[in-house]
């Protein structure tokens, strides 16, 4: 592959977990639930995916396990904030701390293991297109999954009846409840979906991307995904674009260092770029408060309890 194709390829791979996690969070937030625990759910998805893949030899069982682990974590969160009406910000933080700690604890024995690389899934014909063919169509299966997920979510949110109900719950749970929708149940489902996607995102990192387990390997991607949803002003297409932008920033360091351009920047400075970029995009987007306010689900982060 030439340099352009390889940069594109690496960008797409790096952006994929962000897309999956951020789209999951988007659904949860559209229902009014702000779960800051993405980092912890991803960490649990990563270790569950890694351990199951290692023991079973099947990467897809690993992805399923990661999904289940993420969903299980989000269930804890959902019980605390939806049934017990805990503070969403604090509970999300707690979930992050718990998930990162628990994954480090469970993962200790796995730190020296390496998984076999999973081959790419080549799409015939399309992969033969010059320059963009290989980066787009000779990819990990989860890359295609992220595109399907994107399409599915766009359809669900804007073309399906259930999506309309979900958005109604996020805008005004009391109104949705009063016309007969079970707001709490819908929020539960949305939160679980967010957790499941975060788990898949985590499993992608440990099973396909690295493929190994290191404590703290999620390294802020969960938080970046949450920032991405704000940056995208809760619109799926912007999540997609934003995730690839961040993917590009993440792989930039590899190419700058490997380019032999004679640029001698300490690696730590380049590694800090994604975090600094996150801050910069947050500043840009929040300068215009009206855009944020118009697009944010009105009840985001607010507890709701139907007073029967």
């Amino acid at each position: 592959m030439d340099i352009f194709s390889s940069i594109l390829f690496a960008t797409i791979v790096a952006g994929t977990p962000l897309i999956i996690v951020a789209l999951g969070q988007l659904i949860a937030e559209k229902s009014g639930v702000l779960n800051l625990g993405a980092e912890g759910m991803m960490a649990m998805g990563a270790i569950a995916g890694f351990a199951v893949t290692l023991h079973s030899g099947n990467a897809w069982l690993g992805v399923l396990a990661g999904m289940a682990a993420g969903a299980a974590m989000s269930l804890i969160f959902a019980v605390v904030v939806l049934t017990l009406m805990g503070n969403q910000v604090a509970s999300g933080l707690a979930l992050s701390i718990l998930g990162v700690g628990l994954s480090a604890f469970i993962g200790k024995p796995y730190e020296s293991d390496i998984l076999p690389t999973v081959g790419a899934l080549r799409i015939p014909l399309l992969a033969d297109i010059p320059i963009i063919g290989a980066p787009l169509f000779n990819q990990q299966a989860l890359v295609y999954f992220s595109w399907l997920l994107f399409g599915g979510i766009v359809w669900f949110l804007y073309r399906s009846r259930s999506g309309l109900i979900l958005r109604a719950v996020g805008e005004s749970p009391a109104s949705a409840h009063s016309i007969g929708y079970q707001a709490i149940k819908i929020r539960y489902l949305a939160t679980l979906f967010g957790g499941a996607m975060a788990g898949i995102g985590g499993a992608f990192l440990s099973v396909f991307y690295t493929p190994l387990w290191v404590e703290g390997m999620v390294s802020g991607r969960g938080w970046i995904a949450i920032a991405l949803v704000v940056f995208a002003t809760w619109r799926p297409f912007r999540v997609l674009v934003g995730a690839y932008l961040f993917g590009g920033v993440m792989v930039a360091q590899l190419f700058v260092q490997g380019s032999g351009l004679g640029i001698n920047i300490p690696s730590q400075f380049l590694s800090a770029l994604p975090y600094l970029a996150t801050i910069i995009v947050l500043v840009i987007i929040s300068r215009d408060q009206n855009t944020v306010r118009l697009n944010a689900p009105v009840s985001l982060g607010q507890p709701f309890r139907p007073e029967a």
């Binding site: 933080l93 707690a94 990162v100 700690g101 200790k108």
Partner: peptide, 12 residues
């Protein structure tokens, strides 16, 4: 890291 597990449990 079992400490972190206890910490997370406590807050939750």
């Amino acid at each position: 890291s079992i400490s972190n597990v206890f910490q997370g449990m406590l807050l939750m």
